[in-house]
Design a binder for these strands. Structure first.
Lengths: 255, 255
DNA sequence: GCATCGAATTGACGCAGATCAAGGCATCGG
DNA sequence: CCGATGCCTTGATCTGCGTCAATTCGATGC
């Protein structure tokens, strides 16, 4: 039952130099969504932002590090994870462009954050951000809303980990990614930039079980592999049914 | 693997009449902790509070209900849970006096909330609370902090559900409750107002496995049963070790 | 005291998913 | 082109926990 094997860590590649980032404007917009922030304030947000790029496997911060920044992903996929002393790992979530990271106003980060692939982030120093929050309460309301959504997602994940079968877990996972792709205009498509090991550590399964379930979904013509990381959802309806038939978010437009 | 049996619902007892609540002042203080709120503002908080009492098994709200209130528990234990169509249930958390409930500023509740035993809550209507939040940004900062802590707890629970063994789950659970009791001045004592079924549905286990693990902890002289719901932790050190030896919160004073 | 009933415990057995093991299949450097 | 290296897939076997079933315990009412 104890599986450390699925969680071998890679040697971290050397950090890359930070580069100027063309996505800055987009990240600033994210932090100010709802139209609650005026152009003048937008400038102030832009003034405190810094940029960073990471290569595959590189760490943004470690669990337990002093949390001094809030990040927004502008490019690539980031995994968040907690690890037990013996190496067992739980990936608590994958982040994609426009996602927030480290918004907990806590002393220390509760998880590590690593780049799954090439990643770009916007960084907002917490002390300077808090000054801005004092000036613009609407921004704080927005952060609370983001935290609420994360909390709801965490509860869905608890239901998945505590009560769903392996196949239901895979179906739920694919469904969530499919819905995100849908928002970006990609219909019935799922990209899996993370490894099978990562997926297993996210769903509380081993790499073999992940592979077997994906194969089963393929055999049953629910999904089709373009490549091992590029999946087409042939039958979204059935995928939704396999996901456990709770109130899983399945917008009508995707069916 | 699919266990609906562990999740039989009770018929709800008849709701009780709301009664005037002597704990109001305490709840208002909770919402304003950090000293950031002045006495005059405290009055305004007290002015919008309402009280409610629930009997064992009674529901405060259902998953999917329009979320119109924020609650603070002032007495008793509340369970939060999500349920799949076939009855499988995941209890995402247990709440105790001073805990917040429904602070998500979302359209609808993401889970149901039920009284485990006799419970008293303070209720703050959301629309009126938001007006207050606009006036006192410090309160909003406090809510964000509470949400951050909940998020961290949710991530610990994901690690537990995804990667810990049955015995580690029980040990972690007992440890968390022990630490809460410690804060109230009760050392090395754990009260379990919830049923074994509830514990199982929280830890992703069956009632039988919960019982077997508790028996093992008893056999190994780690805990001792005063009654089935009143446990003495004989060896906190070892309980901590059994919990999985991650950074699990184990204050030095409890050892 | 005794009957009742829900909750908890304990034992026997089965199964979903973990573990162990053996290829397959890209990608990359030479 | 070829060997090395990671990652993924698939098969055989094992095991921790779930399932089924039988008591036991404890609270409540009479």
């Amino acid at each position: 039952m104890i599986s450390t094997r699925g969680s071998k860590r890679l040697i971290e590649p050397a950090p890359r130099a930070a580069a100027s980032n063309p996505c800055a404007a987009c990240a600033v917009r994210d932090l100010s969504v709802c139209g609650a922030i005026e152009p003048a304030h937008l400038d102030k947000l832009g003034a405190i932002v810094a940029h960073r790029k990471l290569g595959p496997g590189e760490t943004l911060f470690f669990e337990g590090d002093r949390s001094d920044s809030l990040y927004i992903i502008t490019e690539g996929c980031v995994r968040l994870h907690k690890t037990l002393a013996d190496g067992r790992r739980q990936i608590t979530g994958f982040l994609f462009p426009s996602d927030f990271l480290g918004l907990a106003l806590r002393e220390r980060y509760a998880y590590s954050a690593e780049a799954v692939e090439d990643v770009a982030v916007c960084r907002y120093p917490k002390n300077r951000l808090e000054l801005l929050l004092d000036q613009f309460p609407a921004m704080e309301r927005r952060l609370l809303a983001v935290a609420s959504n994360e909390l709801a997602a965490a509860q869905d994940q608890m239901l998945l980990l505590g009560r769903k079968t392996a196949l239901e877990r895979l179906a739920s996972f694919l469904l969530i990614l499919m819905c995100r792709m849908q928002l970006k205009g990609q219909k019935n498509r799922v990209l899996l930039p993370m490894t099978r090991t990562d997926i297993g550590d996210h769903l509380g399964l081993t790499i073999e079980t992940v592979s077997r379930c994906l194969s089963q979904l393929k055999r049953d013509r629910v999904i089709r592999f373009i490549t091992a990381q590029d999946v087409q959802v042939v039958d979204p309806q059935r995928l939704n049914g396999l996901a456990g038939a709770d109130g899983e978010w399945m917008p009508a437009t995707t069916i």
